[in-house]
């Protein structure tokens, strides 16, 4: 896929996450759209593209966030890598496993993000944070993942085997 279109698409996803989805939140809980986009793309196209999408999407989120620049870029790169590994190793073998991959990556992403923020001095009440935000977000991500995956599968199909390369 054209890298400029990729940047525009991921910039749009970041803006939608920080405007429309944050308006729809309930008690600070909202869909982690960028994470689902990165995981889905990685499942569709493999680690390499997943990581690049994670890095670009993460940077866009970092710019819109009050957190440190690089936090989302790093974690979403790792999310893209992990999901791509899942695609290569297990995704095709068992239909229940995508749910496991999304769940595991959502947990890993949220916990790593919290640990980095705590290391930088942000207070984290772990028990409440885990029960009130992380677990409901996990469920929300699992429920919404097909809605994100299907349009991306269409996009992947229509961009064919076109690799992410600068021209």
């Amino acid at each position: 896929m054209n890298p400029y279109a990729t940047i525009a698409l991921l910039g749009l996803v970041a803006i939608v996450q920080s405007t429309a989805l944050s308006r729809a939140d309930a008690n600070g809980l909202y869909l982690q759209l960028m994470l689902l986009v990165v995981i889905s793309w990685s499942l569709l196209r493999g680690s390499r593209e997943g990581m690049v999408w994670g890095f670009i999407g993460g940077l866009a989120l970092d710019l819109l966030s009050a957190g440190p620049v690089g936090l989302n870029a790093g974690l979403l790169t790792l999310a893209g890598y992990s999901a791509g590994w899942g695609e290569a190793k297990v995704f095709r073998a068992n239909l229940a496993l995508p749910a496991f991959i999304i769940g595991a990556i959502t947990l890993g992403y949220a916990l790593s993000q919290s640990m980095v923020l705590q290391a930088l001095g942000h207070p984290i009440p772990w028990f409440e944070w885990f029960t009130h935000i992380i677990l409901p977000t996990l469920v929300l991500n699992l429920v919404a993942s097909p809605l994100v995956y299907r349009p991306l599968r269409w996009l992947s199909h229509h961009t064919g085997g076109e690799k992410l390369e600068w021209r």
């Binding site: 405007t19 944050s22 989120l61 819109l64 966030s65 009050a66 957190g67 993000q113």
Partner: peptide, 14 residues
């Protein structure tokens, strides 16, 4: 207000 922090841990607005 043009946006909110995409990270649910951080309650910020833009």
């Amino acid at each position: 207000v043009t946006g909110r922090d995409p990270n649910p841990l951080l309650r910020f607005i833009l």
